[in-house]
């Protein structure tokens, strides 16, 4: 333990003392609205690791503050706005969905939006050979609605359910009649797919690709606007018959509502510079993240658009 301790201390020291020429920000305190080991935790720690490793950031500290599905951390950031200018909070698509559901007393526009940094597309997957295309699945469903159960890793009405319903709707099936079975982890949902409990699984592309490589699933379509390099054979949902479907589950950073503009710009410039570094590439590749740099006003516009699209969809499905 002593060895590890000194190692840790040494690592901190080097991170702090190597003031390389291109250091852009002295220190950032990453506020993580969920517990250790989750997606937010990985994003914040990975980003911090890449930034300090590349010398763009002097030192990074991390604080996990869970509670209220992220609401506690947002509240903390708003209440202590003036003393938290060196803080960046990680968040993702659910902040939009939960605000729409009215379970958050806050909205993303209550915070300073720094940038969207990484994303993941939605994917519909099936066991190999069960359906060869999205239209097959829709046909099977139309013939016998009770033959299809859809699963996902979110609660009913949550993100995976929404993505699945969005695709099925656009492909001409009545999504409100499809049975949706929620699972609490991606792995258990996959087991349910392989065991035949569900016929189609709505999941993230990153997870789906790993399973496809292992030869366990076929990906019917992905919710991107163009085919992606990692899987050139997989059609987008638009191509597969669900016209106009586009959805990206972003992750990005927010800061205190009273953050001065020049500081926000400094953070954005630092994150922008991060993508060029080998340290970031190592972290990104390890986690299978898709880059979507979306700073400042673009981020605001993107979020407002997403809020509107999701809001309309949820209302039309009766999810709100």
């Amino acid at each position: 333990m002593l060895k590890k301790l000194t190692l840790g201390a040494a690592a901190l020291m080097t991170a702090a003392s190597v003031a390389s020429a291109d250091q852009m920000v002295d220190s950032v305190h990453f506020l993580i609205p969920g517990g250790a080991g989750g997606g937010w935790d990985g994003t914040a720690r990975g980003t911090g690791e890449a930034l300090t490793g590349a010398g763009l950031l002097g030192s990074a500290s991390f604080e996990n503050m869970s509670g209220g599905g992220g609401g506690v951390a947002i509240g903390h950031l708003i209440e202590n706005a003036d003393s938290m200018h060196d803080t960046m909070m990680v968040n993702s698509t659910p902040i939009v969905i939960r605000s729409l559901q009215g379970v958050f007393p806050y909205n993303f526009s209550d915070l300073t939006m720094i940038a969207g940094t990484i994303g993941d597309y939605g994917a519909l997957v099936v066991t190999p050979g069960s359906s060869t295309s999205l239209s097959d699945l829709v046909a099977a469903y139309s013939a016998d609605p009770s033959s299809i159960a859809m699963g996902g890793g979110s609660v009913p009405g949550g993100m995976d359910h929404l993505i699945g319903a969005m695709v099925m709707n656009a492909a001409g099936a009545d999504a409100t009649q499809i049975a949706y079975l929620p699972f609490d982890a991606g792995g258990v949902a996959l087991a349910a797919l392989l065991s035949g409990e569900i016929e189609v699984l709505s999941t993230g592309l990153g997870e789906a690709l790993a399973q496809q490589k292992a030869g366990e699933v076929d990906i019917l379509c992905i919710t991107s606007d163009a085919r992606i390099a990692d899987a050139p054979d997989v059609p987008t949902c638009s191509e597969a018959g669900a016209d106009g479907v586009y959805f990206v589950n972003w992750r990005g950073f927010f800061s205190s509502p009273s953050l001065p503009d020049e500081k926000a710009e400094a953070y954005r410039a630092m994150l922008g510079a991060m993508y060029e570094t080998p340290e970031w590439e190592a972290v990104r590749a390890r986690n299978g993240w898709v880059e979507i740099f979306n700073p400042g006003d673009d981020f605001v516009a993107f979020l407002e658009n997403q809020e509107q699209v999701i809001g309309e969809l949820m209302t039309s499905l009766g999810f709100l």
Partner: peptide, 27 residues
């Protein structure tokens, strides 16, 4: 054998293995 993490612990180990360049699964 299936690449399915059945518990929180194995989910994290799966991430570790993938980071080390190993893809657990039938192969």
């Amino acid at each position: 054998t299936l690449g399915i993490p059945g518990s929180g612990t194995t989910a994290i180990l799966l991430v570790a293995l993938i980071s080390l360049g190993v893809q657990p699964g039938p192969g």
